[in-house]
Amino acid sequence: MLSYLFYILGGLTIFTALRMILASNPVHSVLYLIATFFLISGQYLLMNAQFLFIVNLIVYAGAIMVLFLFVLMLLNLNKETEPQKSIKSKFTMVISAGILMITLLAAFIQNQHDPASLPLTDIGLVKNLGRVLFTNYVVPFEISSILFLAAMVGAVLVGKQKNEEMEEINE
């Protein structure tokens, strides 16, 4: 039963990811990527990783994709204005990405893995993961908050308009 669910979710994930890179309208790309993230969250739920399921929904499908959509609307890029690469270079790039995929998949076929299904664990629950995060990994957690602060200051600093430009706009 869960196996069928995996195949349905996986097939839909690959389909939406392909539509994401092939859509000519950037807004459609963003919407397909949101669908991909929702489906990947479904995979987390299938593995009983409930904390990651919620965080993936809130952080990825919520915050990050809204940021993408916001910038897309702000720059008024929701038109199909993207210049295309030549057919020859597109062909080359698809072939190179395909070769990478064949290499990876061939390596996985070569190594015989455990055919048994994944065990059902409760390590992914919010309670258990939170205990590990705040005992063994508390220093990386604090350092990541400093990283967030630096990224926030950096984003504001980079995105800020210069004073002369602001005055020109105001006049």
């Binding site: 869960l2 048994a116 994944l118």
Partner: peptide, 16 residues
């Protein structure tokens, strides 16, 4: 439940 092989395949396809 699907095995680890399935997840290896799915994530390498998505990565590519």
């Amino acid at each position: 439940m699907p095995g680890i092989d399935h997840y290896l395949w799915l994530s390498s396809i998505l990565f590519c």
